[in-house]
Computed example of a mutant assay.
Amino acid sequence: MERHEFGAAVRQLRESTAPAAVGLPDGRRRVRGLRREELGDLAGMSADYVRRLEQGRSHPSAGVVNAIARALRVGRADYERLCALAGYAAADGQVPDDVGPGAMRLLERFVDTPMFVSDAAMNLVAVNSAFLALRHWERTGDPWEWNVAWRTFCDPFSTFRQSAADATDHQTILVARLRSALLRYPADASLAALVDELRSRSGLFDTLWREPRPVTAYESSAAFVHPDAGAVTLVGSLLAIPGDDLAALMLTAAPGSADAARLAEIVEDAGEPAIIRVGRAGPG
Rank of each mutant, 00 (worst) to 15 (best):
Q94W: 01
Y88T: 04
A43Q: 11
V50Y: 09
D119N: 14
A62G: 09
L72M: 00
A90Y: 01
A126Y: 09
N147V: 04
L106E: 12
D92F: 10
V95Y: 01
F153H: 05
V99I: 13
V74D: 03
G87P: 00
L42R: 09
L107G: 13
L53W: 12
G87F: 02
F116N: 01
R51C: 12
G56L: 13
W137V: 11
W150N: 06
F116H: 07
F131L: 12
S58I: 14
L124C: 08
L42C: 14
E145F: 02
G102V: 13
D92H: 09
P114R: 04
G75Y: 00
T140L: 10
P60H: 14
F110P: 09
V125G: 01
R51S: 11
D92I: 00
T152N: 10
T152E: 09
W144G: 07
A133K: 03
S129Y: 03
A67C: 11
V127T: 05
Y79V: 01
L85Q: 00
S58Q: 14
S61G: 15
M122D: 04
N128F: 10
R151N: 15
R57C: 14
L53H: 10
M115P: 00
N66A: 15
A120Q: 04
F153Q: 00
Y49L: 15
V50H: 01
C83A: 01
L82Q: 00
D78M: 14
N123D: 11
F157Q: 03
P143V: 10
A120G: 01
P96R: 02
A89F: 08
L82M: 05
